[in-house]
Design a protein around this nucleic acid. Structure first.
Lengths: 300, 300
DNA sequence: GCGATTGATACCCTGGGGATATGAATGACC
DNA sequence: GGTCATTCATATCCCCAGGGTATCAATCGC
């Protein structure tokens, strides 16, 4: 009945991911025997076998899969505890806002301005990138609030939708398809997508290796788009803010709209976070009411 | 940058709860000096002071409060991982349903019957009590799904409302207030509530010590109600199923309705859980449509 | 059947977590 | 204000658990 410890979970996750004791040990920077022993002890302790192992292959049992999932979230919770405590103890508390560059729909400047006047406000700090996984940055305690595109993995998080907009496809202006005014997903079947994490709202689009090195920022992606190497899905606001001569944006009729949402850890109690969320929702609401006539005049 | 370990968090939580190193050490079954040293090391490791301590008093700093909250959820996640893995490895997998006795609104038998016929169903097992905190039982991995009254602490959990019903107050038939047909909360100001965890849907009602020993089950509570020692709030279905000569149920006009909800861990992926939720929602829906005419005929 | 690969076992050794003894600071009380 | 009790911190020792090296054993490819 002794409880699990972080070391055991870390080791278990490593083995579960590598499915190979030697490689897992290498990744952990240790020798293989103590790793094997730790896993064995873990299994004894839980009274459960986690891996079916022969000398030639290692694979997870059902219980192992359950533990893998839970172990990951538990480890996230632990690292989040450390990060948040560290941050809370720092002499200059700040509100850390995680965004993926350029997906904020142009809302962020207004939000920041308005937030600055709020009595509960803290100085803000933008957390860029964060491995492209803002929800994880929140779960790991590296940020206090995030702007992300739905759908996303919202386990442990609360969120509020801000604005919804259509998704356009960006393609080379010279692409034959660019001659058409409207496309369907099927038309794009042959085109490759960025091999990095694309700013497409996390939508699960079939992806195939088109470029060797993952492109991580919009400029890289756009240069690939211009050369016709790839196509790329972007929310309308991103398209509007990135007009480029060689790039054509076209609506895709059967692609659902994407939604920009503000997200924060479910158990956040900080008034600074609450104030930021409130401000963001207000700004988005005014934007929405303004946007409708604008949209019409733009499309007209 | 070494990561936190469970031992450190356990110790920290103990000290944070006791606000006294000696007592915390006793609770942990260890001597005080190593505890002090562990906390000191933890603070060094995080680069944050967690307690303001003099020889006469210990109190949490801001960072300490942040860590306390996060540490609790992290520890819950760890114990949940252990429990779920143990359960998943057991030879007879079961769906563990956490309920507080008698608050299921009479739905449970039907749900269990219908669930039994579902192809994805597992044998079921009722987890009673669970310290009266079903959400915690879910978070700790002691149950797979729960029936609880809203509002409740839903951090990390998903839920679906089943039925909503009014809350009645149960009082001694001899109570002068029982002569009235309808009451307001203010009328009950002088009455005491059960000192145990009351089945009032977790509503934060002011409570004062009326009885020495906490009453944990309905029969105990009802005998106290009959003697006029306490009053007690119960959903209408509980009242309907517990008619007792010495007890009068009266509506309370300014008490909001309570909602029975089905709850499960947010990251549950088990088809058995999904099937149970689906079945429960269906049963509740049919009950709702049946109930409305019934309710009218009952009140008429 | 032989060698290569890979997980398990045997054994040693060091560091860290725990205990005891003691110091130091604060508040209570006369 | 001096004394005592309380309580957290420091000093020191000890032991075991976690890690390393060497080796075995089993499986697969040829």
């Amino acid at each position: 009945m002794n409880d699990l410890e972080v070391r055991q979970l870390r080791y278990f996750v490593a083995v579960a991911e590598e499915l190979h004791f030697g490689r897992a040990a290498a990744r952990l920077g240790m020798a293989q025997p103590p790793l094997s022993r730790t896993i064995r002890d873990l299994e004894r302790q839980l009274g459960v076998t986690l891996f079916e192992r022969t000398t030639r292959q290692v694979k997870l049992t059902g219980a192992g899969e359950v533990l893998l999932r839970d172990a990951r979230t538990a480890l996230e919770a632990i690292t989040a505890a450390a990060h948040r405590a560290r941050h809370a103890g720092s002499t200059s508390p700040r509100l850390r806002i995680a965004i993926k560059a350029d997906i904020d729909g142009g809302l962020l400047p207004q939000i920041l301005d308005a937030y600055g006047t709020d009595p509960a406000a803290l100085p803000t700090e933008l957390v860029l990138g964060g491995l492209g996984d803002q929800p994880k940055a929140l779960r790991d305690g590296l940020a206090d609030v995030a702007l992300v595109l739905r759908p996303m993995d919202d386990r442990g998080l609360d969120s509020e939708s801000l604005i919804t907009e259509p998704v356009l496809v960006a393609m080379a202006a010279t692409d034959p398809l660019a001659a058409r005014t409207e496309l369907r997903l099927a038309d794009l079947a042959g085109r490759s997508l960025p091999s990095g994490a694309p700013a497409d709202g996390g939508r699960a689009v079939p992806r195939r290796p088109g470029v060797t090195r993952p492109a991580s920022n919009l400029s890289e992606i756009f240069s690939l788009v211009e050369t016709g190497s790839i196509v790329f899905f972007a929310p309308a606001s991103v398209a509007r803010r990135n007009p480029r001569p060689g790039v054509a944006y076209r609506p895709v009729s059967d692609l659902p709209n994407c939604t920009l949402a503000i997200v924060w850890p479910q158990d956040a109690r900080s008034p600074a976070v609450a104030a930021f969320v409130r401000v963001a929702c207000t700004i988005a609401a005014t934007r929405r009411t303004q946007a409708e006539p604008q949209m019409q005049s733009t499309t007209a």
